[in-house]
Structure formats: structure tokens, C-alpha cells
């Protein structure tokens, strides 16, 4: 029973992070139609920045949120305003836009990753923050892990409320449904798409900040997270923010279970789930 609880709670702990990462990608792919393979690089930037601030200036990791979040948002926003908007303007069809923006995001992946490698070097880094054991239903967890889940839930819910309640949030949801009619109804579509891209990047950087509290960080850590985010987005249904959140938790649980049985096959299991899902139900668990 304790093992079972351990697996479930462990799954939720990692699932919270997956949910956050996937919500970010869901905004970028579900709304702005950019399959952003450089998504994980924003996670990496958030993680390494947090690490630097903590080790150099002893700044509390949670406070680095104030730096990482806005900076990543600005970077994402500017990227969409410059790179993706130009591709959108020059692509004759949605299909061409999807391929070209995918290729451009590959280029950005290389750029960001290698700038980070030059800046931080290839070493694996880490720091110890709140690494004290806490007992939960008789199972021991790190306090930092619980904090991570807490933050992920708060950020996730806050963002959902933002989408549901504010004017900008409603415009984003309208654009996710159908960008042409949203534009007709007076939504400034270009700026909404750029906002989505910025929010996606900010969510990634926040997730990176949380990840750095519990796991080692390196400049090449991004790609596995990108893959996980894409799997969750497909799992949860394209463009569905609640779906991404739920999908993240589900994948976390599955991952926790597989890790318990055979740790080296976790990514394999994720990928097999993704493959089956694509072949059987490409619209996802919450998809239409």
C-alpha cells in the first residue's frame, strides 16, 4: 500500500511539472500553430538562470521567478513578432507555415542551446534547496518536490483563471477555436499569437526554475522535456489547456509506475504511449 501511494504521489509530483511544460507548448502549438521544438530550451534557460542566481548571489529560487518569467515572456513575444510572424506572412498555406515554423524552431533550438553551452559550459549543475525529507502518508518525499508540485498547481490554476476570466484570455481562447473568425470579431490576431508564444515561453522558464530545485541542470537538458511536452499535448488534445494539465498528471503517473518497475524504460514507455495514441486517437483524451 505504501509502495502504491509512493508511486502515485511520485507521479503527481513529476506530473505537475509535465503539466506546466505542456500548457506552455499547448499555447504555442494549439493556438499559434508553431510546433516549437525549442520549447525545452526555454526550460533550460529558466533552470540555468535560477542556478546562477542561487549560486552566485544566493537568491531564493522562487524569487528568480521575477526575472525568469518576464524575461522568457519578452523573448518569446519578440521571437513571434520577428521570426514566426514573417513566416506566417510569407507562407502560402497553413501546411507550409507549420513545416517552416517547425524548421525555424529547430534553428532556434541550436542557437539557444549553443549560446548556453558557450555561456555556462557543458557541465551538469545542481544546488541543494529545501532538500529535507517530509513524510506524506508514511512515504518520504523531498520538501522541494512538494514545493514544486504546489507551485506548478498554483501557476497552472492561475493561468487557467487568467484565460477564463480576462479579456486577453478570452481573445486567446477565441483564437484557439478559430483564428479567422476571431480576427473578424476584432481580435488583433497577430498580437494574440505573439502573446501566446510569450506566455508559452514564460511557463517553460517557470517550469525550468522549479526543475532546478530538484533535478540536475545542463544546457542539453531541454530536448527530453520537449518530447514529453509534445506527448502530453497530444495526450491532452491539441489546444486544450485543461487537457494539457490533466495529460501532464496522467503521464507523470504512468512515468512513476514505469520508473518503479524499470527506470531505464521510462522514456520508451512515454514514446510508446504517444505512438499508440497517434495511431488510435490522434485527437487526444480531451479532444473533439
Amino acid at each position: 500500500m505504501e509502495t502504491f501511494l509512493g508511486v502515485v504521489i511520485g507521479g503527481l509530483l513529476i506530473g505537475g511539472l509535465y503539466a506546466l511544460i505542456a500548457m506552455g507548448l499547448s499555447l504555442q502549438y494549439g493556438v499559434a500553430r508553431v510546433l516549437n521544438v525549442s520549447h525545452g530550451e526555454f526550460i533550460m534557460l529558466g533552470a540555468l538562470t535560477t542556478w546562477s542566481l542561487y549560486t552566485a548571489f544566493h537568491i531564493n529560487p522562487l524569487l528568480s521567478l521575477a526575472v525568469c518569467g518576464p524575461a522568457a515572456f519578452a523573448l518569446g513575444y519578440v521571437l513571434h513578432r520577428t521570426v514566426y510572424r514573417r513566416i506566417l506572412a510569407t507562407s502560402p498555406s497553413p501546411g507550409v507555415f507549420e513545416s517552416n515554423s517547425l524548421l525555424a524552431s529547430f534553428g532556434l533550438l541550436f542557437v539557444i542551446q549553443n549560446v548556453a553551452l558557450i555561456a555556462w559550459g557543458a557541465n551538469t549543475r545542481g544546488y541543494s534547496y529545501l532538500a529535507v525529507p517530509v513524510s506524506l502518508f508514511g512515504v518520504l518525499f523531498g520538501a522541494n518536490q512538494l514545493l514544486t508540485l504546489g507551485c506548478a498547481l498554483v501557476v497552472g490554476v492561475a493561468f487557467y483563471v487568467f484565460l477564463a476570466r480576462t479579456r486577453v484570455g478570452k481573445a486567446i481562447r477565441a483564437a484557439a477555436q478559430d483564428s479567422t473568425s476571431a480576427a473578424l470579431m476584432g481580435v488583433n490576431i497577430n498580437s494574440v499569437l505573439a502573446l501566446c508564444f510569450g506566455f508559452g515561453a514564460a511557463l517553460a522558464a517557470i517550469a525550468g526554475m522549479l526543475i532546478s530545485m530538484c533535478y540536475p541542470v545542463t544546457p542539453v537538458m531541454g530536448i527530453p522535456y520537449t518530447i514529453i511536452a509534445m506527448i502530453v499535448v497530444v495526450l491532452g488534445g491539441l489546444g486544450s489547456i485543461p487537457g494539457s494539465f490533466l495529460g501532464g498528471l496522467v503521464l507523470g503517473l504512468i512515468g512513476s509506475l514505469v520508473t518503479y518497475i524499470e527506470p531505464s524504460l521510462t522514456l520508451v514507455a512515454y514514446y510508446l504511449i504517444f505512438a499508440l495514441l497517434l495511431l488510435v486517437k490522434p485527437t487526444g483524451i480531451m479532444g473533439r
Partner: peptide
Amino acid sequence: RLKGVYFAFFTFGLVELIKHLLLW
């Protein structure tokens, strides 16, 4: 039969899948 980017992503994951299976 998967549309555009899904295929790209599937083949991307394929490399990782084989790598991890082989490593295991």
C-alpha cells in the same frame, strides 16, 4: 497517414525510442 508535423514528431521520437531501447 499522419498529417505533416505529427509525422515529423513521430520520427523524431523514433530515434530516442531506439536509442533507449538499445541502451536498456
